[in-house]
Computed example of a mutant assay.
Amino acid sequence: MNNIAVIFSTSPYGNNSGKEGLDAIISISSFIEDIALFFISDGILQIKSCQKPDNILFHNHSISFKILTLCNINKFFVCDKSLKKLGIKNNINNWTIPVKIITPRLWHKYISCYNIIMNF
């Protein structure tokens, strides 16, 4: 059985890769049972709550990540080193989805368990 890890590493408003990744996950979720999302670097901003992108004339797609729980996707991992680098504190209210904060070592260990890795 295939399992898929999806890495988000880019900021949400510099390009469309975050939205495209979200669309891809929703599309494949009916065929693949084991999907996990990994957020690193600026990709963490994809799921940061309280965004106001309308100020820069963009749509806030971060709230769309909530639909993934309806697709039975509940593995969301954030790299703690990236949090520190971006100056973001780990607070439950900081995220649009329930995330698990893990070290880079665990991040690599978890992601190595997946046989398909997609990067957005």
Rank of each mutant, 00 (worst) to 15 (best):
I44D: 15
K85N: 04
A5V: 09
S9N: 13
K89D: 11
K81W: 02
F76M: 05
S82D: 08
S9L: 09
I63H: 01
I56H: 05
C79W: 00
S82A: 13
L83A: 07
L57I: 03
N115R: 05
N55A: 04
F8V: 09
Y114M: 07
I116G: 06
I7E: 08
D54M: 03
Y110V: 04
N16C: 02
I102W: 04
S17T: 15
L22W: 08
D34Q: 13
V99N: 02
I4F: 11
I56E: 05
C50V: 08
V78M: 03
F38M: 01
N74G: 13
R105H: 05
F39K: 03
E33R: 13
N60I: 09
E20K: 11
A24D: 05
N74C: 06
K109W: 00
I67N: 12
N119S: 15
Q51S: 11
I7Q: 06
K19C: 00
D34V: 09
K109R: 10
W107G: 01
F76W: 05
D42A: 12
F39A: 12
F31R: 14
S112M: 06
I101F: 09
I28Y: 14
F58L: 12
S30G: 09
L22Q: 07
N60Q: 07
G87E: 05
N90Y: 11
L86A: 07
L68W: 04
S64K: 13
L106F: 01
I56Q: 03
F77N: 05
D23L: 10
S30Q: 12
I63L: 12
E33A: 11
Y110E: 06
F8N: 08
F39Q: 01
S11H: 09
Q46S: 10
L70C: 12
N55E: 13
P53Q: 04
I44V: 15
C50Q: 11
N74P: 06
S9E: 11
L22D: 09
